[in-house]
Every structure is written in C-alpha cells, then in structure tokens.
C-alpha cells in the first residue's frame, strides 16, 4: 500500500499539482507529521503510521493542514494524506470557511485496515477520495447508548467521576481536528476559573462539548490522547447526535451548507416530527 501512495504522491509532485505533501515520517522509530517537498525526502522514511499495530500513529492531519494553509505566504496547493476521519474533518472545516480556496488541498486517501477500524469503532474507515488500501466495513460504536441506559442521577455521577480525573492538559482540544479558533473559550477566566484542578466540573467539559455540537466528526483522537482516560468521544458523539436528530445535520459530509447552529430561522431539515 505504502508504495502505491508514494508513487501517487511522486506523480503529483512531478506534474506540479502540489508543492509539498503533508504526510507522516518515521524518524528514528518515532512517527511524526512531515511536509515532504522532494522525492528524496519521500524515499527516506515516509510512513503511513503503521507501527505496533496498523495506523497506531495517527495525527489530526486536517488540523495540521489548517495551520499549513494559515501560515503559508502563497496560494500553492499541498497534498495531504487522509484517512476517512481526516476527510470528514476537512469537509467540516471547509463548511466553517477555514480551508481557503477549494483545490488548495489535494487529498491522497488511504483506507484503514480492519484492525484499525475495529480499534476505533470507525463509522467510515475510508475516504471518498481513495488511492490505496482495501475498504473494510464500518464498525459501530455504542458507547452513547450504553451511557443513555443509565438514569439521570447515575449519568451525572458517572460523568462527574470521569471529569474529576481531568488534569486540564487541553490535549482533547489541541488534538481535535475541527477545533480551529485562535482564542479558546476554555481559557476564558470569566467563564471558567483558570488555575483550578480539576477544572470546574462539569463546566469545563460541557463547554467543550457545546463547541462540538454539530462539529465532532467522531475520529476518537480525543479519547486516544486523554492521559486521564476520560471517554470524551462518547460525550462529543452524543452532542453531535442531538444536532443530527434535531436538524438532520450529519457532520463531516461534503458540501457547502452551514452547521445548523450558524443558521437563523427554521431549518428545512427540521421536520415537524422532531418538534
């Protein structure tokens, strides 16, 4: 698979369609994101992040692309290595007007291996723009339903206990591919007292959850990165689901339409049945 991707990227570079390729590189056994600019660089350590297990080293490629675009001084197009989740994140960021002109990013898609898809219970383990790998079927994640079976009091107790472990590292925010603000509400002292540990419970986590409504593309990076093992994905997945139920909006789909929270007035997707 990796050779096929490499060849594809090389041809993109040779034809001048991209001026660089945002991918992953194995540097002395550690996989890091890297902007490949020459064929030689590609030959030297290009990686798909398959370390101990397939796709074990994942990065929020969409977010890295966002920074790349924001910091580049010209309009040159870049290639980007995307999995299904990365593509959903790019679609979502595009709806929020964050990726500049269309065509700025050339997606080089890879399908996730079955083990990876299973590990992350991925809803769509392959991108639409697909170059290499074999498509495997989606895996269901039922964590939301499991929490919803609890009654309200035990649900509150459950989340309070989870949130109480928070060390406020902001890892969930920093890894999140669809978090793009220059200043973050989580750091606004008037809203959430800074310096407290654990942070104000549940204020801190619910504030972030609010920002994930109509936005979370269910990549599971937050849960993966959380040093306190808080099941954040379940929380964000739930708020995204509420928006889907209310407005029929599914995050990460390609298209131009706005997130329903950014639309004034009745949404056509909001049917009487949901009222």
């Amino acid at each position: 698979m990796i050779e096929k991707v490499k060849e594809h990227v090389k041809s993109l570079m040779a034809s001048g369609k991209i001026s660089g390729f945002l991918g992953l590189k194995n540097e002395n056994g550690v996989v890091i994101p890297f902007l490949f600019q020459t064929e030689e660089e590609l030959e030297n350590g290009f990686s798909l992040g398959d370390t101990e297990t397939p796709g074990a080293a994942r990065y929020p490629m969409a977010k890295l692309a966002l920074h790349l675009i924001q910091n580049s001084t010209d309009d040159s197009p870049y290639g980007i290595l995307v999995r299904g989740c990365d593509e959903r994140a790019l679609n979502e960021l595009s709806r929020w007007n964050q990726l500049g002109s269309p065509g700025r990013l050339v997606k080089v898609g890879i399908a996730c291996q079955e083990e990876l898809a299973k590990n992350h219970e991925c809803r769509k383990p392959f991108p639409d723009e697909f170059v290499a790998g074999e498509k495997v079927s989606p895996e269901a994640n039922n964590s939301v339903q499991e929490v919803l079976t609890k009654d309200l009091d035990s649900r509150l107790a459950y989340w309070s206990a989870e949130f109480d472990r928070c060390i406020k590292c902001y890892g969930c925010r920093d890894i999140c591919p669809v978090c793009f603000c220059n200043v973050c509400t989580l750091e606004e002292d008037a809203l959430i007292k800074t310096g407290d540990l654990p942070p104000e419970n549940p204020m801190f986590h619910l504030t972030r959850a609010i920002h994930m409504a109509g936005r979370c593309i269910d990549c599971n990076l937050c849960t993966e990165v959380c040093p306190a093992h808080i099941p954040l994905r379940t929380l964000y997945k739930r708020v995204a689901e509420i928006i889907t139920d209310e407005f029929g909006y599914i995050t990460g789909e390609p298209g131009e339409g706005k997130s329903p929270l950014n639309i004034l007035g009745p949404d056509p997707g909001h049917t009487a049945a949901n009222d």
Partner: peptide, 9 residues
Amino acid sequence: CGCLGCVQV
C-alpha cells in the same frame, strides 16, 4: 477566524 457563523445569524 472568519468562520462566517455570525454572518448567517
């Protein structure tokens, strides 16, 4: 960030 959310509302 120019996300255009405010423009719509």
